[in-house]
């Protein structure tokens, strides 16, 4: 099983390409190094069809492992809104193929951590328009890809790649991706369902090179069916500070870090 290695806000997996040219592009994407340590404060702005906004701010710590039992570990704390403050989410992602993540949720009102099952990949991530699958590693062998051509998007020359699901049960049956030729990073992804209706649009912008990594500081996901949208904006990011393994423990989940 192969997973992509490029990183935007969260590791977002793209594709494997059957066509030789497409495969080369995706291999370049796959070869993009991910930061080993990340500490970011992210604002998630949720907007419904009436234009009403709700804002959530989270602090996210993530550590990538190059070898060993774990692929990565992450720890998330809600900073805002006030009624969610202190809620924490700890996730251990294993390297072993097929092994489910271990996940714990801490709710201050409950006063203890609670083990939760590996999230339903299609369910929404904390009320946003991103699913857990959108936010995490995706098994790239589940899709085949074809290079459709080249287009200019937001003033940047891009490869346009179509991904087709091999398995009919997948939520996203088809994906169109625009990959920046300069940055080797995606600028936009269109998602299509089983009836080939477009259901979502993901746009990544405000790319900045931080410590040698291209970081999209803004991600905007629009759910066309629900007429709901979510914007993730990085407020602070630190890729330099080495995060200790002890950070990604239930001790810290209960204690809170910030």
């Amino acid at each position: 099983m192969r997973h992509s290695r490029y990183w935007i806000l969260f590791p977002l997996v793209t594709s494997i390409v059957l066509a030789e040219t497409g495969l080369e592009i995706m291999e370049k994407l796959d070869a993009q190094p991910a930061p080993e340590n990340m500490n970011a404060v992210v604002t998630m702005t949720l907007e419904n069809k009436r234009g009403q906004q709700r804002i959530r701010t989270i602090q996210r710590y993530q550590k990538e492992y190059t070898d060993g039992e774990f692929e990565n570990k992450s720890l998330i704390f809600f900073l805002e809104p006030a009624d969610e403050r202190g809620t924490g989410f700890l996730q251990w992602n294993y390297r072993e193929a097929g092994k489910d993540d271990d996940q714990w949720l801490y709710l201050p009102a409950l006063g203890r951590e609670k083990r939760i099952a590996a999230a339903e990949k299609n369910s929404e991530f904390m009320g946003t328009d991103f699913t857990y699958e959108d936010m995490g590693d995706r098994d790239i062998s589940k899709y085949t890809y074809k290079l459709l051509g080249e287009e200019t998007l937001a003033g940047e020359a891009c490869w346009k790649i179509e991904g087709q699901a091999k398995d009919k049960s997948r939520t996203y049956q088809r994906m169109l991706s625009w990959i920046s030729k300069e940055k080797i990073q995606p600028l936009r992804v269109d998602f299509f369902d089983k009836r080939d209706d477009q259901i979502k649009v993901l746009e990544m912008s405000d790319y900045e090179q931080i410590n040698g990594f291209w970081i999209a500081k803004t991600m905007h996901m629009q759910n066309l069916k629900k007429k709901h949208q979510t914007t993730l904006a990085i407020q602070e990011i630190d890729l330099k500070k080495v995060l200790n393994d002890d950070l990604f423990t239930i001790r810290m989940l209960k204690r809170g870090v910030r």
Binding site: R115, I116, A117, A118
Partner: peptide, 11 residues
């Protein structure tokens, strides 16, 4: 104790 089993969690 608690442990995920299949798609749920046993406690």
């Amino acid at each position: 104790f608690s442990r995920p089993v299949l798609s749920g969690v046993l406690r």
